[in-house]
């Protein structure tokens, strides 16, 4: 393999950007396979049923894309943080507050036409997420409090807060603790009228993806964010306020995560459950690392993670393995993506 200690040529860079994730996935599949064998399962059966459950069974691919939808937005959110040199590991909390606020707007605000009500609910969710992440950004900028700790703490606060709201003031009439149903005028409609769950949130996520590329690559603000992330001292020298960019980046990052929560409740659930099953925050980091901060990479990683989650139910039925193996698989993938040198040393000879 190449020795990439000194600035590699652009072709080598692209090569690295594609091969590192690919090899990481491959090696992770092998290692997870070994764990499966040790714990008494046949990896081949497991992986085949996973692929079947994610792509081949009726409606499977639509489910894969449905699950990928929040991942795209969350992956972009975390990536924007990385671009600014910030590690937003509080995506999950921002997702929760985004979801709960847009749900509330979705059922409590009445008498609006869909063309106003739906955007209002979406924006409400994004703003809530932005505010939640903005707290961490503000403390980082003004007091130097490390965002990794503050965003994690804000996660736990968000969980407790939504738990209180859903069991208390926002609780619906049913026996299960959840909010009332969102009104039709605030729902993200289904893409196809078939039995699957795929909704317009997916298209929204794709539009945001293009917008993300435009912001980071073509706008002055994006350039400033990238400069701060790449070299804060150089940014200061160029007259960019690092503190301001820290807050702005966290706001945008949180808005994307909040929007993911909004899309999930307005498009998929139609209400806010007491707890979401997926660990969105950690998945978001994984997707961002796997996508190497590139929007297309984030899209591919999101579909991959969507597929693994969508297929895991079928996998459990067919291969009798707990879906938690998916998290093991994902964890190995990102260990290798995060430490590409390990992967390179595997394939050196």
């Amino acid at each position: 393999m190449t020795n990439t200690t000194k600035s590699p040529s652009p072709i080598l860079k692209v090569w690295d950007a594609i091969w590192t994730p690919l090899l990481s996935v491959l090696v992770a599949l092998i290692i997870a396979g070994i764990i499966l064998i040790i714990t008494g399962a046949n990896p081949l059966t497991v992986y085949v049923s996973l692929v079947k459950g994610a792509f081949i069974q009726p409606g499977a691919f639509a489910e894969t894309l449905t699950i990928a939808t929040p991942y795209i937005l969350l992956g972009l959110g975390v990536s924007l943080g990385f671009t600014a040199g910030l590690f937003n590991i509080g995506a999950e909390g921002q997702f929760y507050v985004g979801a709960v606020v847009s749900t509330y707007i979705g059922y409590a605000v009445t008498g609006l036409p869909a063309i106003i009500h739906l955007p209002l609910a979406l924006i409400g969710g994004a703003l809530a997420g932005a505010l939640w992440a903005g707290i961490a950004g503000y403390f980082k900028a003004t007091r130097g409090a490390h965002e990794v700790i503050t965003t994690i703490m804000l996660n736990y606060i968000a969980f407790a807060l939504t738990d209180y709201l859903i069991n208390g003031p926002l609780r619906g009439k049913g026996s299960a603790p959840r909010t009332p149903e969102v009104l039709d005028s605030a729902l993200l409609p289904k893409l196809f009228s078939s039995s699957d769950n795929l909704h317009w949130g997916f298209i929204l996520a794709l539009v945001i993806l293009v917008g993300y590329w435009f912001l980071t690559q073509r706008m002055p603000l994006g350039l400033q964010i990238r400069t701060v992330g790449a070299n804060p001292d150089a940014a200061r020298y160029a007259g960019i306020s690092v503190n301001r960019m820290t807050v702005v980046s966290m706001l945008i990052s949180g808005a994307l995560c909040g929007l993911a929560g909004a899309s999930e409740v307005l498009g998929r659930y139609h209400y806010m459950p007491a707890a979401f099953t997926a660990g969105y925050g950690f998945d978001a980091i994984a997707i961002s690392l796997l996508g190497q901060g590139n929007p297309i990479g984030v899209l591919i990683a999101s579909v991959l993670f969507g597929a693994m989650n969508a297929g895991s139910g079928f996998m459990q039925l067919e291969a009798n393995v707990t879906p938690a193996i998916i998290s093991v698989l994902q964890a190995f993938i990102i260990v290798f993506v995060a430490a590409p040198a390990i992967i390179r040393s595997f394939f050196k000879k």
């Binding site: 660990g279 950690f282 980091i285 994984a286 690392l289 938690a324 998916i326 998290s327 093991v328 698989l329 994902q330 964890a331 190995f332 990102i334 260990v335 995060a338 430490a339």
Partner: peptide, 8 residues
């Protein structure tokens, strides 16, 4: 990443 690994 190791935190995520541990959860998984």
């Amino acid at each position: 990443v190791l935190n995520i690994f541990a959860v998984g």
